[in-house]
């Protein structure tokens, strides 16, 4: 809230994440997994929707939002993911297809942000670290999946595994430049 400069933050990516969480957590209405699980779902939902609200409605934040460079169109990602979820899923129910759609969409939701970073020559420390930790966080899921595969019976989930792997791959190029800039102690820039 103190840092009102949101240059370099993609509203499109934030909106896609809000959509990801809204479609994934429909089970909150029908199933209970654990208190931790429910609390984390509420945190993901409230944080993603409040970021979108801030970027659209907050006067100071909106002013610094780099709208002209953030031109990626939602439908190019949302529609293919929806079609893929309708074709490839484990059960043909509304909740399950929405859940699968959210898995596919999450894998590619970072793309508008990566495109915006590439267009913005001067990458903010905040934005660079945000993207790095978002990718690092998701890549840890892969370790978790390997662990669960060996410790839990019947733990085989191709849809989440392949999507999570694709998601991490999309970050690979960014990771390379981020770690290089960190190692050489220079400001992060991406090649045009």
């Amino acid at each position: 809230r103190k840092n009102t400069n949101k240059r370099g933050v993609s509203l499109k990516t934030q909106e896609l994440y809000a959509l990801v969480f809204a479609t994934r957590y429909l089970d909150m209405f029908t199933d209970f997994i654990s208190l931790y699980n429910t609390v984390m779902k509420l945190i993901f939902l409230s944080s993603s929707f409040s970021i979108v609200w801030y970027m659209r409605r907050h006067k100071l934040v909106r002013r610094s939002y780099d709208k002209d460079h953030d031109t990626f169109r939602h439908q190019f990602l949302v529609l293919p993911c929806l079609i893929l979820a309708l074709l490839i899923h484990e059960q043909f129910t509304f909740k399950e297809v929405m859940w699968t759609f959210s898995i596919y969409l999450e894998a590619v939701a970072i793309l508008p942000q990566l495109v915006l970073l590439q267009r913005t020559r001067n990458i903010d420390n905040l934005t660079g670290q945000y993207v790095f930790f978002l990718g690092a966080y998701r890549s840890l899921y892969i370790l978790n999946w390997i662990y669960r595969y060996f410790t839990e019976p019947h733990y085989v989930h191709w849809i989440t595994w392949i999507s999570g792997f694709v998601q991490t791959l999309l970050y690979a190029d960014f990771f390379y430049y981020y770690l290089n800039s960190w190692k050489n102690n220079v400001k992060l820039t991406l090649p045009a």
Binding site: D27, T30, D31, I33, S34, N37, M40, K41, F44, K95, W99, Y141, Y155, H157, T160
Partner: peptide, 10 residues
């Protein structure tokens, strides 16, 4: 299978 078999991930 039950819903939370693999939907327990966030």
């Amino acid at each position: 299978r039950e819903w939370d078999d693999y939907h327990d991930e966030l």
